[in-house]
Amino acid sequence: MKIAPVVVLVGSLLGACAHAPTSPRDVTLVERDGASRALPEIAARAPLTVLVFVAADCPCLHAHLPRLRELAKTYGPRGVQFVGVDSEVFANPERARQTERDLDLPFPVVVDHGARLANALGAEYATFTAVLDRSVNVHYRGGIDSDKRRMHDGATPYLREVLDDLLAGKPTRRKEGKALGCVLRKW
């Protein structure tokens, strides 16, 4: 009997470490209307899609909100759709809608049950972003910029640079960037 808690703990740890590999193309997300849609279906709506992994109570994400809103405003008219992704264990459509309201996001938040998309993309922290094209090719994964929360002027704008490159038809100057947000509570 005494070994049971240890078994549970070890099993949980192994479970946390052993994410089954999944392609982003195979992931289904739940949108605000409660409908489940495959990621390729969502990505097909715009030439480029920016997935932003959110945690409503993450101060680092809060600090980045003005920049996110500005990016969505700047690049939305240029064919870039922004989609928030809630991969945390508590995620559900109602919470997603609440997150949209609480964070005053100018884009929808979808539910990633089981954190399958987060695991497929390697997202571990809020503010992690991924840039996809219509065919769900991943052109960038990582942070919004190099700021953690201070929002200094000298930060390197990873996401902006990648979007500029892609919209100009050039290879992206970076494929990955460090995400500096909060740990996503996936399970």
């Binding site: 740890l13 470490c17 264990v89």
Partner: peptide, 14 residues
């Protein structure tokens, strides 16, 4: 740190 604090709802970071 095989598991970070906050990574799981019911299991603490180790």
């Amino acid at each position: 740190d095989p598991l970070l604090a906050g990574e799981a709802q019911r299991v603490p970071g180790v």
